[in-house]
């Protein structure tokens, strides 16, 4: 077991992390918004954590809080990314389709150039020597952070989908104008979906900074946006399991292809092409096609009191 974790622990945690990033893009997509901004918020979240955990300015806090510093970094990252999401989202979400995607690409490129040049983000070198969360000895232990976050996110997503807000998201995805005419305010929900994604990506970033030990401008790039988009589309964009499966598989593929040595990145590109050609509904979509959801059952209009067999109470 120890051997297995030693060898694959890092990969497994990375797979979970990829699934989470996939989910961060999945929320805006639920409301029909193709945002490629996730890596930007991921990078910001990571920087927030890295700065809080290494910058001398916060040494006092670290001494006072001890391990409590880590949850604080999550909170701070979530908050800052939420606010940043709001600031970017309100103007950007007036755009549709590919225009929004391009605006979010502009957003991450601007963030990248800024982080390359600020001293607080360590410039081109970035921030290094980020302490391990809760004194973890091994990388696989980060599963205790990412695992619960994944479970909570999936529960959140499932509950959301069944709720009034989830319906509003879907209505906007299907037909924004009709949704508006039927009383669903599109801007409100588009921004909400965008901010949910931003907060999640920021949280993942804040947990990843100690995990990766260093943080720099390479963390939030355009390549990462498309990789994350691939997680969602190839996993399946209509089901919460899609981004998780896609993120895990696409992260594992290059590792599994290690025996191909230098060819593996070429093959990895081919996998993306072939998957987008042959799995247009995504992996989960292709599997789910076999199993249709049950038709909705009509609830009894008058509450019927069902008596247990044998009666009595």
């Amino acid at each position: 077991m120890g051997d297995f974790l030693g060898q694959y622990g890092f990969l497994i945690v990375t797979m979970v992390q990829a699934g989470l990033l996939g989910l961060s893009l999945y929320f805006p997509l639920q409301a029909g918004q193709l945002s490629l901004a996730s890596p930007g918020f991921y990078a910001v979240g990571g920087y927030v954590a890295a700065i809080l955990l290494t910058n001398p300015a916060f040494a006092g806090w670290r001494d006072a809080l001890g391990n409590g510093m880590f949850p604080l970094t999550w909170l701070a990252a979530a908050l800052i990314c939420g606010v940043l999401g709001l600031i970017v989202g309100v103007p950007a979400l007036r755009l549709r389709g590919i225009y929004l995607a391009l605006a979010t690409i502009a957003f991450i490129e601007i963030l990248r150039v800024i982080s390359l040049n600020l001293s607080i983000t360590g410039g081109a070198i970035g921030i290094f020597g980020i302490p391990q969360a809760f004194g973890f000895q091994d990388r696989w232990q980060y599963i205790w952070l990412f695992g619960p976050l994944l479970i909570l996110t999936l529960l959140f997503a499932r509950q959301l989908e069944r709720s009034r807000v989830g319906r509003a998201f879907r209505a906007i995805r299907e037909d924004e104008l009709a949704a508006d005419a039927m009383g669903v305010p599109p801007t409100h929900y588009k921004v909400l979906a965008f901010v949910i994604g931003a907060v999640l990506a920021g949280l993942v970033g804040a947990m990843s900074a100690p995990f990766l030990n260093t943080w720099n401008a390479k963390q939030g790039t355009f390549d990462a946006s498309i990789a994350i988009l691939a997680f969602v589309l190839i996993g399946g964009s209509r089901n919460i399991w899609g981004p998780v499966v896609g993120g895990a598989l696409l992260t594992a593929v290059p590792e599994l292809l290690r025996f191909l040595a230098d060819w593996r990145l070429v093959i990895n590109g081919l996998v993306l092409v072939v998957a987008s050609l042959y799995l247009p509904q995504g992996i989960v979509g292709a599997l789910g096609g076999v199993r249709r959801p049950p038709p909705p059952r009509r609830p009894p209009s008058v509450p019927v009191v069902v008596e247990a067999p044998g009666g009595g109470s």
Binding site: F156, Q159, L160, R162, S163, R164, V165, L192
Partner: peptide
């Protein structure tokens, strides 16, 4: 019902 009402049922 808002976001949290939906999520917490």
């Amino acid at each position: 019902a808002g976001l949290w009402a939906g999520v917490f049922g």
